[in-house]
Structures are given as C-alpha cells and as structure tokens.
Amino acid sequence: MLLEGLLRTIPVSLEQGLAYGLVALGVVISFRILSFPDLTVDGSFPLGAAVVARLITAGIHPWISVLVAVATGFIAGCCTGLLNTRLKINSLLSGILMMTVLYSVNLRIMGRSNIQLLTVDTLLTPLEQLELPRLVPLILFFLVVAVGMKAAIDLFMHTQLGMAMRATGDNEQMIRSLGVNTDHMTVLGLGLSNACVALSGALVAQDQGFADVGMGIGMIVAGLASIIIGEAVFGIRTVARMTLAALAGSVIYKFIIAVGLRLGLAPTDLKLATGVMVILALGIPALRGKEKEGKLHLRGV
C-alpha cells in the first residue's frame, strides 16, 4: 500500500522538481558560480508569475508574456547587483532589499494579491488538451525546458565571458588583475540567475493555474535544499555536474516532500521541514568538529 502510494508520487515529483529546478539552476549561478548569497529569488519568482499572469489575462500571447517575465527577472537581478557593486551595500542586504521592494512591485503588477489563470489559454493549454494523461506532456515539456536551460548555462560558462564570471566567484582579485571588471560580471550573473528564477515562476503559475504574491516565500531555501541534496549525489567538480546536481536535487527534494506529506506531514509544516533539512546539511560538518565547510565560501558578507 505504502509502496504503491510512493510510486504514485513519482510523476508529480518529477514534474514539480523540473519546474522548480529552474530556481535551483538560478541559485547555482548566484551561490555557486558567483559565490554571491542572492536572496532576490523570493521576490523574482513571484515577479515572473505576476508578469505572466497580468499579461496573459490582458490578452497578450503566452510566449511573449513569458519572455517579458524573464526580462523583468533579469532586470531585478541586475538591480540587486547594482545595489551591491555601485552602492556598496552588503550582498545579503542587497537581496533582502530587492525581495522586499519586489513584494510591492508584484502587488502593483497584479493589481491584487492573486490572479487565476484556469479560464484563460496559457502556454500549457495545448499540452493539457492532448489525448494523454495530463502529466505526461507536462513532464516532457518541463524536461525539455530544464535540460535546455542547463545545457545553455553549461555552454555559456565555458565561453570567454562565462569563464570570467566563474573566476569572479572563485578569485576576484586574480581576474581583476587580468583586466575583467568584476562588478559587471556580478551584475550580469545575478541578472541571468534571476531571469532563470522568473522563468520558473512564470511557468509554475501557468501550471498551477494562478499567480499569488506569496508564492515566493521560502523559495531560496528550497533552492538551496535542492542543490545541497543534488551535490551530495553528483559533486561540484565541473559546471555540468553542478547544474545536473541542481536539477536532480530539485526532483529528489520534491519527492522527499511528497513522501513527507504521505506520511502525515502537514502542508503548513513544509517550510519548517525544508529549513531543518538545510540546517542539518550545513550544520552537521560543524557538529562533527570538522573545519568550516569550504564549499560555501561567499563574497560580500
């Protein structure tokens, strides 16, 4: 009985894991590649959802709506980067400020605290109308989008520009002495990261049928949980592994959550459970008396 129940959670975990995996990919770019603890995510995720919901209900084509949502996420990330590099505001605080600002911005965009999308045509409507079980085309769609994004990030990080971005997170002094403006790299990287997150928000809103101003709460912690789980399995030696770890970790994370719900965890306790998961993952090495984990070295804090 239990086993059968667990098996039934797999398709939905896969779909959700891939859709939210785009958030984890964004978190890889900020936390891992740039070593920048960017908390904008909790605001840029609902930003993507809000923009897409507002535009689609206004009759704009879903594809264009998604593109605009991604662009606004990019701008939001750049703003966080500028707060940090231009105004010299601490990196954590820059993200918190943007996240707070975006809460009001998202309410302005939507005009109210949520917009439902069940009665309008979205990007996913043609897929849902196929003569297939609902989840099959959706899983394929999110698989294509997530893997495509992963591949694009992998390729970009091996270009001249992408290598300069990775070096900015690894050894800022060194790459600056090689003539790279590390401020530009930080702003661009945070833009790309939040563009990824906003894309996730835009697609999730269409998948679940509504955009809500509160849908981003705890998103950064969930993203971190995903990459920590994934990295425990796949390691972080190359960019391709990091991005693979993010996607796989996101699916595993959603599966763990689904199992927890089946075992009687209240949906309201999910963020508590996620928080405890991240605290344990980050804290166990310290409790074991090991040196501070060198993995999560962060700039500007």
């Binding site: 970009f156 091996h158 270009t159 001249q160 520009l161 992408g162 290598m163 300069a164 070096a167 790459i175 090689l178 003539g179 790279v180």
Partner: peptide, 16 residues
C-alpha cells in the same frame, strides 16, 4: 586561457 586574454574584451566565443 583567461590569462591570455588579459586586458582584452571577452566575448561569447569558446574559452579554450
């Protein structure tokens, strides 16, 4: 490869 580009603009061409 990064060092070889010291002081030059960096684009979207392959790094190595």
């Amino acid at each position: 490869a990064m060092a070889e580009l010291r002081g030059k603009p960096r684009g979207l061409t392959w790094g190595v």
